[in-house]
């Protein structure tokens, strides 16, 4: 089943590097997933996070406030 990945962040440098990491992992490992960037602050607040960037996989918050490594993302996606 295709995974839904959401990246929550208002566009700060950290959010951009998180997006880059996720995109790399998904394309390098040919993972079936859609990546969505959530930049609207009101949308972000619906997830109850206090620190951005945050990574949401299938509506579960997995990482918040930091940029993960590729290995970490891969482990979360499998």
């Amino acid at each position: 089943m295709s995974k839904v990945i959401k990246i929550l962040g208002t566009g700060c440098p950290k959010c951009q590097s998180m997006t880059a990491v996720i995109k790399d992992v998904v394309s390098e490992n040919k993972i079936d997933a859609t990546i969505e960037k959530v930049e609207d602050i009101m949308e972000i607040m619906k997830f109850n996070v206090m620190t951005t960037p945050a990574l949401v996989i299938d509506n579960v918050i997995t990482i918040k406030g930091r940029v993960p490594s590729k290995d970490e993302v891969l482990a979360l996606l499998n």
Binding site: G9, T10, G11, C12, K14, C15, I41, I44, M45, N48, V49, M50, T51, T52, G65
Partner: peptide, 15 residues
Amino acid sequence: FCSCSSVPLFIGFVQ
């Protein structure tokens, strides 16, 4: 501190 986190922090606190 990351300036982009100040808004979510603010909301999180008052919430």
